[in-house]
């Protein structure tokens, strides 16, 4: 058996090597699998409605917003029925919102484990993101059922859904690592989360289309709007599956760049906080 050499030194950002940290993760891949399975099990085993919970949240929001827009006689959905228009965006949105909420408190909710066992701490938030991905898959199945119901078939643009979810997962991991690390010192993060997500929902093209935003905002403001990666991601996902449209390439590229810039920065910061997380958590 190989003898690894481990060195523990006072925390310093220059000692953080993200590549080496990733390599160290390999040994704990089985822990990641075990904890992820556990996470999914706990979510669905111990509740009466079980896996229904994964789809109830986006469905409920879809119904509420459909009723609302029916009352004010508006149809931001254009050619597709509004319930389908909204639900197609609510599925990736719900993955983001529930994944971020649970993963951002992954360290603070495991204080007793963190002070007694040493293991790569990023595994904890990552397992919540796996659970959010499982929720997403179930939500996508319901989306398929709705498409059959409304007689909307996906075209060849549908493959764009895959890169949009890949970018969403990347962004979610980066932001969750960052917020989980910040929350160790500032519990405000957990308290601010519901407000943040509420504002974020309306700042993303979930209940309206990105085209509507482009039509009403001057170009510089529109660019700032698309710096929110959810803009490009959600719009691409909906266009791909229910609108039969190519993505808004500029918005999707912006989302990809933001996600790819955030991830390494967040990871280094997380590994830095990890060194003393047991003292502060």
């Amino acid at each position: 058996m190989i003898r690894p050499t481990v060195v523990y030194e006072p925390p310093a950002l220059r000692h953080i090597h993200p590549i080496a940290a990733l390599r160290g993760l390999r040994q704990f891949f089985d822990l990641f699998v075990t904890l992820s399975l556990h996470r999914v099990n706990v979510r669905y085993k111990q509740s009466r409605l079980g896996i229904l919970w994964a789809v109830l949240q986006p469905l409920a929001m879809m119904i509420v917003f459909t009723l609302m827009f029916t009352l004010v006689r508006a149809n931001p959905g254009g050619p597709v029925p509004f319930p389908l228009f909204a639900y197609a965006a609510l599925v990736p949105w719900t993955m983001f919102a529930s994944g971020l909420t649970s993963a951002a408190s992954a360290l603070t909710s495991h204080a007793s484990l963190l002070t007694k066992v040493a293991f790569p701490r990023e595994i904890l938030p990552l397992t919540y993101i796996v659970a959010a991905l499982v929720d997403f898959l179930l939500g996508a199945l319901v989306l398929g059922a709705l498409m059959v119901w409304f007689d909307v078939s996906p075209g060849w643009h549908a493959f764009w859904a895959a890169p949009s979810i890949l970018i969403l997962t990347t962004f979610l991991i980066g932001l969750a690592l960052l917020l989980a690390a910040v929350q160790v010192r500032y519990r405000d993060v957990g308290l601010a989360m519901p407000v943040l997500l509420q504002v974020w929902l309306f700042a993303s093209p979930v209940l309206y289309s990105l085209d509507a935003v482009r039509a009403s905002l001057p170009p510089p403001l529109y660019f700032i709007y698309t710096l929110n990666p959810l803009a490009g991601i959600v719009e691409t996902f909906r266009r791909a599956l229910v609108l039969h449209q190519a993505p808004d390439y500029a918005a999707l590229l912006t989302a990809a760049i933001v996600a790819l810039l955030l991830l390494p920065i967040a990871y280094v910061y997380f590994k830095y906080v990890e060194l003393t997380v047991a003292d502060t958590v």
Partner: peptide, 28 residues
């Protein structure tokens, strides 16, 4: 510090080999 649960404030610790640390039985 030896188990790698938290980092030292000063100095350096070098461990050669795979470590199993039992701080409180059944803590995991």
């Amino acid at each position: 510090l030896l188990a790698g649960i938290t980092a030292p404030t000063t100095g350096r610790i070098v461990l050669n080999g795979r470590v199993a640390a039992l701080i409180e039985v059944g803590s995991g």
